[in-house]
Amino acid sequence: MSWLMFALAFWIGAWGLNAWLARSPWSGTRAVRILVPVLFGVTLIVLWEGIVRALEVSPVILPAPSVVAQTFANSTGLLWEDVRQTVFKGALTGFGIGASAAFLTAIAIDRSAFLTRGLLPIGNFVAALPIVGIAPILVSWFGFDWQSKAAVVVVMVFFPILVNTVQGLRETDAMQRDLMRTYAAGYLQTLVKLRLPAAMPFVFNGLKIATTLALIGAIVAEYFGSPTRGMGFRISTGVGSLSIDLVWAEIAVAALVGTTFYGIVAWIEKRVTFWHPSQRG
């Protein structure tokens, strides 16, 4: 029971500290803004550890975070191999191909108002569909290796990025376009100097949505067959063979990779769209 008491005490203490920090005069500073959520996350892990230890939950049901951390440390080689297979080969390749294809398609159809009006509702509709379902089809088309995973990712990221880019390209107002006309700018110049920069907040919105979708696609596709490595493969076999601690380590890796990927895209967004109101301040 002492573990449970400790966890509860830690929870109350951390909550009190957070409440005090949030109301303190330093609540606006960067350090506090990072410290508060970190403390919250640590509290969750301590609670988890305390509950698992106090109630003696079987490691087959829910391993304690300390056990997961140990497994993580012991199998870094294995985890790294899975990341290379799933993320670098499957997800990133697919993300690159899908994003560039969507971007170029958006610029191409943008020249025709007719096509834009036809494609935008369809794109919006398809973006809301459960596209992950095509994973088994694409795995049977492209084989078990990373090519099929990349193909699933391409299809999944294509429509969100396409729709966002097309919408972004329509963002400039008449005044700005007229100004470009008075400068005697051609189509290409207007595109590069005015419309693409104006579209960037939308493009990055699509890219950020796509980062999560890319990982989801790559992992789901591995449930339908993969070589004997990869995060999805390890998770599905780990659940089957009850090595739950390895599954949680793999989940931790997925979380880490997902957050990093999102963070990188958000960081690039900050550099590219520094002028946008949402990035100021």
């Binding site: 957070n18 992992i219 793999e250 997902g258």
Partner: peptide, 28 residues
């Protein structure tokens, strides 16, 4: 304000975690 400061970042992070990795675990 406390909830805002501690929960909001985690809500965003929770969406960057591929749920499919968790799905078999939740079912087990």
């Amino acid at each position: 304000r406390v909830v805002d400061m501690s929960l909001m970042p985690w809500a965003i992070i929770s969406q960057t975690i591929p749920i499919v990795a968790l799905a078999p675990m939740i079912i087990v």
